[in-house]
Write a protein that binds this DNA or RNA. Structure first.
Lengths: 119, 119
DNA sequence: TCAAGCGGCTTACTATAGGTAAGAATGAGA
DNA sequence: TCTCATTCTTACCTATAGTAAGCCGCTTGA
């Protein structure tokens, strides 16, 4: 096995439980690829509702991973931008993306509204 | 931002929703660091119950990330070992671990050089 | 003046996932 | 026979997520 990994690490655990919450991984990926508006995020991630998006963005803001910026146009626009802390997650997301690309079990699924978790 | 990342990728999404389920990240880390028995896994991850561990291991097995091996000693022992697919997650977990180490919001335990002053 | 729309939330309700405790099958050995 | 250890399962209840509708401030246009 990989002996360079300790079996349990509270910091890792906090991180994986935070970014692993439902939808958060997808939202982060969208943010890091340049999508910054509420409505664009919602449209980017299929199945994501207003309520969840709003909740997740608040959590990410509370963790200092994104900042919220109000742009007083009309109608008002809000930009969510990753902080440095957020931007440095790109490596993690990239690594997971590569793993997924290589090992994906997805057989051209016809986009389910709820992600198909094994059952 | 990172333009090399597409805003949404179904394979990435499936992966992040799978390994991001509650406890799964911690279980994987333990598995990859060499913990392989049911009871050892349960003890490695604080707060993890039998029920959740059993459920998550089944999911991981169904995804081909671990294999289950019965060892007919007495009392019976079961080994859960990562497959190649599972082992290749080490890079992701390592990257997240580094991110967590660097950005952890967790209050650090008292300075290791002067532990006597703690409390 | 009044209806209708846009963007970003919030509220109210329902459904599903997870927490907690207890139990159960298996096989030994006292 | 009784107990013990290990790996699950069952039953029950709470917490989190899904769904739908509404709200607020502002603007357009009729």
């Amino acid at each position: 096995m990989n002996e360079s990994l300790t079996a349990f690490c509270p910091k890792y655990h906090e991180a994986v439980e935070l970014i692993g919450r439902r939808w958060t991984g997808a939202i982060l990926r969208a943010l890091l690829s340049g999508v910054s508006r509420f409505s664009d995020l919602r449209e980017t991630v299929p199945g994501l509702s207003d309520r969840m998006l709003s909740e997740r963005l608040k959590e990410l803001e509370a963790q200092g991973i994104v900042t919220r910026r109000v742009i007083p146009e009309t109608p008002v626009r809000i930009e969510y931008l990753p902080t440095e802390k957020g931007r440095s997650l790109a490596a993690v997301i990239g690594a997971l993306g590569e793993w997924a690309e290589r090992w994906a079990s997805l057989e051209e699924a016809p986009a389910p509204s709820t992600p198909a978790l094994a059952r």
